[in-house]
Design a binder for these strands. Structure first.
Length: 127
DNA sequence: GTTCTTACA
DNA sequence: TGTAAGCA
């Protein structure tokens, strides 16, 4: 089950796929909302998850949150995820639940981000 | 031509 | 946020 997510998208591609301007994308990065990789030439390279994260940010922003609010929201989601991860790795877990089941426990609005972050966690443990 | 940073309106 | 300058 090789599930890699290399950062291969240029900022131009990300603009098209997220509907955001390069200006906004760079601004969110400066605000600490995203951390894309860099090529040797210092150009930004985004992964599939970065794009999903950008879309999540865009959604939260459209819901009235400001940059600070989005940052806190993303942090909250991550903490929630770490908590669930502990349960998954717990010695008390007899039956390891599948990601699908886990995600179903979450409200639809947070499911996308949850799955996305969980996938990242799983990948990091494998590497 | 694309992207990057800095800076000004 | 848009745009321009000067680079890579």
């Amino acid at each position: 089950m090789e599930k890699k997510d290399p950062a291969v998208y240029s900022i131009g591609i990300v603009e098209e796929r997220t509907g955001l301007t390069g200006r906004q994308i760079r601004y969110y990065e400066k605000m600490g909302l995203i951390t894309p990789e860099r090529t040797e030439g210092k150009q930004r390279r985004y992964s599939e998850k970065d794009i999903n994260l950008l879309l999540k940010i865009k959604q939260l922003l459209s819901e009235g949150l400001d940059i600070k609010g989005v940052k806190e929201k993303l942090k909250a989601i991550k903490e929630e995820l770490d908590l669930k991860e502990d349960l998954l790795n717990s010695k008390y877990s007899v039956n390891i639940p599948g990601r699908k089941e886990i995600s179903s426990l979450y409200p639809v609005s947070d499911r996308a981000a949850l799955i996305e972050l969980l996938t990242e966690k799983e990948k990091n443990k494998k590497d």
